[in-house]
Structures are given as structure tokens and as C-alpha cells.
């Protein structure tokens, strides 16, 4: 069973968001990492890149698959988790502890369109 954490926001494309003030901390869900299998590479944007809600901001790679990362919110990337560059397996180890990017949100109301834990649980089973 994939783990789901209460209190986070979820996108139907399997990204989670933790809100810290005006900043959205974004990662992928435990369900997503289980579907992917051993993750071999995280293709992440660079600091200062703009991301747009609903559009791709990077990708996860495994041996036999590649999956786009879709941004749940719009804004500017303020931090990228550099640890994942050399250790993409950390997402397999704990998808919620290992965020991918932090985004300074340009329109926090976009959060309202995201799912809560219960709603996400329904679509990821």
C-alpha cells in the first residue's frame, strides 16, 4: 500500500505540495515512486526557472520508463534538491521526505484546485 500523508495537497498527476508561507515544496508521491520502480535520474529545473501550473517542469527516469513531472502551482523555482542529483534512489526510500523543488508561488489560489489526502487516496488506488 502506498503511503499518503495528511495535510499535504496533491495533484492528480501524483505530485505533492507542502506550503511553507508563500513557498510550495513539491515532490512526488509514494504511489508514483512505486509505479516507477527504481528511479535512476531526476531531471529537475534550475533555480530562477519559471514553472507553470499543469505544465511539465522535469522528469523522473527509471530503467524502462520516463515520467514527466507536472507542476501543481505556478511561480519561480527558489531551490532545487541537489541531493537527488547523485542519489535519485532517495525518492524510492522516502518520497515524502525527499522534495524535488521549492517554488515561490505567483498565485497561491491555484492550491485550491489541488486534492486533499482523502481525495488523492481515491484516485491512487
Amino acid at each position: 500500500m502506498a503511503k499518503i500523508i495528511e495535510g499535504l495537497k496533491y495533484a492528480p498527476t501524483h505530485e505533492w505540495v507542502r506550503v511553507e508561507g508563500g513557498v510550495a515544496v513539491i515532490g512526488v508521491t509514494d504511489f508514483a515512486q512505486m509505479e516507477m520502480g527504481d528511479i535512476t535520474y531526476v531531471d529537475a529545473p534550475e533555480v530562477d526557472d519559471e514553472v507553470v501550473a499543469g505544465e511539465e517542469f522535469g522528469a523522473l527516469e527509471s530503467v524502462k520508463a520516463s515520467s514527466d513531472l507536472i507542476s501543481p502551482v505556478s511561480g519561480k523555482v527558489v531551490e532545487v534538491n541537489a541531493e537527488l542529483e547523485d542519489a535519485p534512489e532517495k525518492i524510492n526510500e522516502d518520497a515524502f521526505a525527499n522534495w524535488i523543488i521549492k517554488v515561490e508561488m505567483s498565485d497561491p489560489s491555484e492550491l485550491d484546485a489541488l486534492l486533499d489526502a482523502a481525495a488523492y487516496k481515491n484516485i491512487s488506488e
Partner: peptide
């Protein structure tokens, strides 16, 4: 290796 860049997985990307 690194086949996730390739056409049989990523198709138009």
C-alpha cells in the same frame, strides 16, 4: 543504458 532518453520510451520527447 540511459534508455529513458530514447524514442521507444519517450516517443516525441
Amino acid at each position: 543504458t540511459l534508455q529513458a532518453r530514447e524514442q521507444h520510451i519517450r516517443r516525441e520527447k
